[in-house]
Structures are given as structure tokens and as C-alpha cells.
Design a protein around this nucleic acid. Structure first.
Lengths: 221, 221
DNA sequence: ATTTTGCAGATTGTTGACATTCTTCAGATG
DNA sequence: CATCTGAAGAATGTCAACAATCTGCAAAAT
């Protein structure tokens, strides 16, 4: 127990842990976009002083999850539809690059793993198990991005996805759109399996571009 | 004078100013990659306490300019050749997107401005004025990225360029490579002027990809 | 001779207190 | 009645001191 706690703090400082925790709180929806974040309240909640809290907030600010206004405080970032669209465009470019890279260097194990995620999503759709679908969906995207062999790419991509979680519309994925989305996944994975970089690039770009359109259409309702 | 200082602090807090200053010191080469950054020394240098210094460092850490090792301190980030190559690949993808976007929405004034930068670089090359060339070169890239109409894209692109400044090889641009580079600039700008997104995308991507090759070749010498 | 141990100094981590700024709202003013 | 003024309370900004950890080196042990 103690050894575990020590191990935890070996390369994770208190501000880093606090940052992770505040991020969880924000993305978990406990604070809504636009809400003010009170330093004292957080310090009290975690039983520490305001110093580490402030350090964590400076980091979250750079991550794009909060807005800091001097002498006014920090607020959960509020994304406009236009900003969300911007982020989707950048994300599409990065994801396409990831797909292209992975199509070049993917191992047989990589391909097998990706196919596993697609199959799991197929089953989840059949079972109307949306929770599993969402988990597997993220796992597939993360696997593609982290196995692409470019850590910088992965970092920036994941930062964008985090920011997008601040843009919560009625995010109820319609059953048929989910199925269509997984067809796109299949094309992505098969392009990678075929070791076809151009095809993978197109499939990955198209997937995010389509997701953007779906989201924007959803936004109008 | 006072009013100016007050105005400066209106939406720029002390930690933000300090962050900018530390960044300047790092990118200015005063600290070399791998060097340890002493909090106390910085606090003394700026005549403030360590609190704001630490906040600035947490932000710089997320920016990717420093590495933080708990209980050991912060160090100027050291980029390997492989990491620099990674960053170039991501940068190429983002810059290509910027070129594509700008080709769609550029105003006549935008095109004129871009052509002005290219012309200034032509003149600088003729005069062997490398300093001006570098300034204009950055100005052109920044103009393209900020006028592309996607703030997220600009933010991430500029962050990558900042990181690349940590990778200093013998960065003496050879005279003919500079001229070749400006020919690429001309093609980029003319593609934008022609309002041809696909051509602009290709020209911008090619420019960064070529720059990467030049840098990597340079690295082997 | 090599490794280990154990200080002493230096550096990072954290805290609580104080200074400054902002927010709120009641009361005054036109 | 609307607007302005200004004090009280609360929140952010900064600091200096203390605690915990690391580094370097000398002395001891194998």
C-alpha cells in the first residue's frame, strides 16, 4: 500500500496528479463549460494548499480545457460550434497522417488488434450496447494514433479529442449512424491491413470529416 | 509609462509574462538543451518569488519546451533527430491544411501580402542578407497559418515550430538551398492566388517535406 | 581499490499568511 | 427611477518560511 503510493509519486508529482483529477472532474461533467473554477474549493476538496492547484491549472490552460482571465479566475472552456468545427478539421488532418503512417509500419499483431476492435463494435451494435461501443471506438482511435510511430502526432491528436469532449451536444448516436461509422472503421483497418498508405489516408480523413458533418447536422436540431 | 505597465498587466498576468521571458531565454540559446533550469536563479533574476516561476514552468512543460522530473527539477528539452523528424511530419500535415484553407478564403490583400514576403526574400537572397531572409521567412509562414481561418491549427502549428527551434544543428542555410526554398514559397503563394486548394495543399506539404529532408541531410554531415 | 554509508549543502515541494483585485449590493445622488 | 459611489466580503496574486528530497563528497567498511 505504502510502496504503491511511493511508486505512484516516483514520476508523478502532486500537481500532475491534481491536474489529472481536475481534468477528470471537468470532462466528467461535474463542471459545465463556462463554469468558474474556485481554487480554494479545489484545495479544500483535495486537502492541499492552493499552490499545487494553481500549477495544475496553468497546465490545463495550455491543454485548452480552461480559460484563464487574470484577476478573475479560471473557467471551464466553452467551445462554439465554429471552434468545434475547427478542431475537427485539424483532427482530420492528423488522423489521416496517422492512418498513412500506420499503413506503412503496422505489424500483423497491430492489424489483428484493430480488427478486434471493429468486431467488438459490430457486436456492440447488434446488442445495442452503446457503452461498449464508445469504449471500443475510443480504443480503436487511440490504438491507431499511438501505433503510428509518431509520439508528437499522438499527443496533439489526443489533446484535440479531449477538447472536443467539452462540446457536448445531444450526443446520442443514432443506431444507423453508428453502423455507418463502423463501416468507415472497417475500411480504415482494411486499408492498413492492405499496407496501402494513400487508401488509409483517405479512409481516415473521410472518417473524421464524416463525423464532423454528423455532429454539425446534429447541432442544427 | 505606468499606464503602459498597467495596460500590460490587464490581460497578461505575471506568470504569463514570466513564461514569455523564460521562453525567450531558452529559444535565445542562453540555456542549451539538456541544461537544468534553477527556480531560485530565475526568481532572483526577475526579482520575484518562486511561485509565479513555477506556474510559468508548468505551462512551458505542456508547450514541450522543457522536461520536468519530479524532485529533480526542469531541464531544457533535448530533441533527438528522430523527434525532430516526427515534428516535421506533423508540421507538414498542418501546414498543408493551412495552405488548402487559405486558398479557399484568401483575400486580395492576403495574396498581396504573401507576395510581398516572397519578394522581400528574393531581395534578401540577392543581398546575402540572411537575417532579413529568416525574419521574412517566418513572417510568411505565420501569415499563411494565421490567415487560414483556423485558430486551433495556428496554435498547434506555431507550437511545433517553437519546439523545432530546440533542434539546432549547424543551421547554416546554403545559398542555393535558400533560393530553392523561396521557389517553393512562390509556388505556394501562386497556388493560393489561383484559389486552387489541391495545388496549395501539395505545394505547402512539399515545402515542409523538403525542408525536413534538407535538415536531415544537414544532420548527417 | 571498490563500494557503501552518512552527513552537509543545495534544490524542489508545499504551506499559510498577506496584498491586491474583483464582485456585490446597499445607499446616495442626479 | 436610473445611475453612481463606495464599503464589505470573497477570490485571486504573491511571498517568505518550512519540509522533504536530492546531490556531492568524504570517511568507513569490505
Amino acid at each position: 500500500m505504502l510502496a504503491q503510493a511511493i511508486e505512484l509519486l516516483r514520476d508523478r508529482s502532486l500537481p500532475m496528479l491534481i491536474e489529472q483529477e481536475i481534468e477528470r472532474v471537468i470532462l466528467g461533467g461535474e463542471y459545465a463549460p463556462g463554469d468558474k473554477i474556485n481554487e480554494q474549493a479545489l484545495a479544500l476538496r483535495f486537502g492541499i494548499s492552493r499552490g499545487p492547484i494553481r500549477e495544475a491549472l496553468r497546465s490545463l490552460d495550455r491543454t485548452g480545457l480552461i480559460d484563464t482571465i487574470p484577476n478573475r479566475g479560471v473557467f471551464v472552456r466553452r467551445l462554439t460550434a465554429a471552434q468545434a468545427a475547427e478542431i475537427y478539421d485539424v483532427r482530420a488532418a492528423l488522423f489521416a497522417l496517422a492512418g498513412q503512417c500506420l499503413a506503412i509500419r503496422a505489424s500483423a499483431a497491430d492489424v489483428e488488434r484493430l480488427r478486434g476492435h471493429v468486431a467488438a463494435m459490430d457486436e456492440a451494435v447488434a446488442r445495442d450496447d452503446f457503452e461498449t461501443y464508445i469504449t471500443e471506438n475510443f480504443a480503436l482511435h487511440e490504438a491507431i494514433v499511438t501505433r503510428a510511430g509518431n509520439a508528437t502526432l499522438a499527443t496533439h491528436y489526443l489533446a484535440l479529442v479531449k477538447q472536443l469532449r467539452l462540446y457536448r451536444t445531444r450526443n446520442l448516436m443514432l443506431a444507423d449512424s453508428v453502423q455507418a461509422s463502423n463501416e468507415e472503421h472497417r475500411e480504415m483497418v482494411e486499408a492498413i491491413a492492405a499496407r496501402d498508405p494513400a487508401r488509409a489516408y483517405a479512409a481516415h480523413f473521410n472518417h473524421v470529416a464524416t463525423a464532423k458533418i454528423r455532429l454539425m447536422a446534429n447541432h442544427l436540431t
